[in-house]
């Protein structure tokens, strides 16, 4: 705790839902980045969380931009600041819809071009800002307003797409581990070029669990191996502490599923499929860590 700055760059109080994990994450992102930072925010929950004109809870500049355009806007901004001799942090803070779906072309372009910025996707696994419609990041079986019978297909593996761009740094994080997130943002910002952090951000109204369970839900995602925390520096994988233990002996998937209304009445065969996917994922990371790809 002592290393975390006391300064809050997200003022009291935002218009985030009670128990919102993405505003918790934003607190730590800004603590890590400090005041010489510009956030670029496409349409997402943070468009609202930042506050309504003329007041805002954000005490760093925030550039709001259209849904598909965050990474491209950040490219322009980063280049302008560098042209002016400034090394201000440029951070995209975008939801999963704006990243895995409508914004993926701009994201891919910005990474391929080597833009000097950090792209953070906070992933609540649906279009939360508009009332939980499915996104490409919605997991198999999850009910959303546009998948009322449960999503029939798996979550898009965003990280492997980003990884294919060979960024100098990428990591996953989870709102339940804010200190881990803080360290990862710090490290990312110390490296030039395009960096990426993918945060799992549980959402009480969207996932349909009580607000007080936000941290618990994130921890269960990690403990069951559903969400694996890792870093990848110049391609080299290192599994983060909480996931190391979880990968050796993952908690039963049901513990994560059962508390979430979005997985209510899950068909057993879907649960089996989900379990297989988790196992395969764990094995894939374990093999890579052991040096066999």
């Amino acid at each position: 705790m002592s290393t975390i700055p006391k300064e809050e760059y997200l003022y009291k109080c935002t218009s985030a839902c009670a128990g919102c994990s993405s505003s918790l994450c934003l607190r730590y992102v800004l603590k890590a980045a400090g005041p010489d930072t510009v956030l670029v925010v496409p349409a997402c929950c943070t468009s609202v969380i930042q506050g309504i004109y003329p007041g805002t809870a954000m005490s760093v500049p925030v550039y709001n931009i259209a849904f598909a355009a965050a990474a491209a806007c950040a490219s322009g901004l980063s280049n302008a600041l560098r042209a002016r001799g400034k090394d201000t942090n440029v951070i995209v803070y975008a939801g999963d819809g704006g990243t895995v779906d409508i914004g993926i072309q701009a994201l891919s372009g910005a990474f391929e071009r080597g833009t000097d910025f950090l792209y953070i996707c906070y992933d609540n696994e649906a279009y939360g800002n508009t009332g939980m419609q499915r996104s490409g990041a919605t997991p198999l079986g999850a009910r959303t307003t546009t998948t009322p019978g449960g999503k029939p297909t798996a979550k898009k593996d965003l990280d492997r797409i980003v990884e294919a761009h060979n960024p100098p740094y990428m990591a996953t994080a989870c709102s339940a581990y804010p200190l881990d997130l803080y360290k990862k943002v710090k490290k990312a910002l110390s490296i030039p070029g395009p960096k990426f952090i993918h945060i799992l951000a549980p959402c009480p109204p969207g996932w349909r669990y009580p607000t007080e369970k936000t941290i618990e839900m994130g921890k269960l995602a990690v403990k069951t191996g559903t969400w694996i925390l890792y870093e990848r520096e110049y391609g080299k994988l290192s599994i983060s502490g909480p996931s190391k233990a979880a990968m050796k002996k993952p908690a039963p998937l049901e513990e994560y599923i059962k508390g979430q209304g979005r997985f209510k009445n899950l068909k057993p065969e879907i649960l089996d499929l989900m379990r297989q996917q988790v196992e395969q994922n764990i094995q894939r990371f374990a093999r890579e860590e052991e040096g066999q790809c």
Binding site: Y11, T14, Y53, G55
Partner: peptide, 18 residues
């Protein structure tokens, strides 16, 4: 253009949500 400036309680006193 619409430019918001930082201040506390930009969304009011959210304690009333409780």
């Amino acid at each position: 253009l619409a430019l918001s400036r930082p201040k506390e309680a930009s969304s009011g006193k959210t304690g009333s949500w409780r």
